[in-house]
């Protein structure tokens, strides 16, 4: 007892120092997990952005826009695009007459579940990519991680204003739809309450090739 009382101040100071060390160390560990999560989120968003861009840049390839629209109107619901189908033609010039194969690509938004971010409940989705070659059946050809919270495809005019019915607009004027804008947001794979980045955003406006 005497020993404890003699060293009481040292004990108090020691305990305080220990607790401070512990809490700081915990925060350092949390930060390290946050950074890994953030990296994973950015990496997955970047992969998704890459294949979406590669697809969209070939939208309407070898198709005469004065004859037909190389896409169907994006299906929008609750501010999100739930389905978007577009196509291009592949031409085999080694045969006479040249053979044309239509390649259709479709993005479907599939609801996977819900996530709570800063008190808000968000639905999270997976983007399923399906491809149809010529008259064949739709085949799955890739999917995003089930972390997409927003996915929106808009067809834009020359002033970057959204065209409500792009197929009809293009039929009336082949120059009425000039760009495709794709935007999406992706949530972190793990819930971290104090994380700086809860979602990453991506957006790209790509001109439709002539």
């Amino acid at each position: 007892m005497t020993l404890i009382l003699d060293n009481l101040s040292a004990l108090v100071v020691g305990a305080t120092v220990f607790l401070m060390m512990l809490s700081t160390q915990l925060r350092v560990t949390e930060m390290s997990v946050e950074q890994s999560t953030s990296y994973m989120m950015k990496n997955q968003a970047s992969s998704l952005a890459t294949w979406v861009e590669e697809d969209i840049l070939r939208l309407g390839e070898n198709i005469d826009k004065t004859v037909e629209a190389p896409y169907e109107n994006p299906v929008q619901a609750n501010g999100r695009t739930t389905e978007f189908t577009f196509f291009r033609d592949s031409i085999n010039t080694n045969v006479a007459p040249p053979d044309t194969l239509r390649i259709q690509t479709r993005y479907d938004l599939e609801e996977i579940g819900e996530r709570v971010l800063e008190g808000d409940t968000l639905s999270v989705y997976r983007i399923n990519r399906n491809v149809k070659m010529g008259g064949g059946a739709w085949q799955p050809a890739g999917q995003s991680p089930p972390l997409v919270s927003v996915f929106r495809v808009d067809m834009l005019d020359m002033d970057a204003q959204v065209v409500a019915d792009p197929v009809a607009a293009l039929a009336a004027d082949p120059l009425s739809v000039r760009n495709t804008r794709v935007r999406f947001a992706m949530v972190a794979p793990y819930d971290l309450e104090r994380s700086t980045l809860q979602q990453v955003y991506y957006g790209s406006t790509l001109i439709i090739p002539n």
Partner: peptide, 27 residues
């Protein structure tokens, strides 16, 4: 780290805005 993360996100969005503006001018 927080500032860097937010800045990177802003830069990503700014890049998207720049691209959209360029497409407007390009037409």
């Amino acid at each position: 780290v927080q500032n860097r993360d937010i800045k990177r996100e802003m830069e990503e969005m700014a890049g998207s805005i720049a691209l959209e503006t360029m497409e407007i001018i390009r037409t």
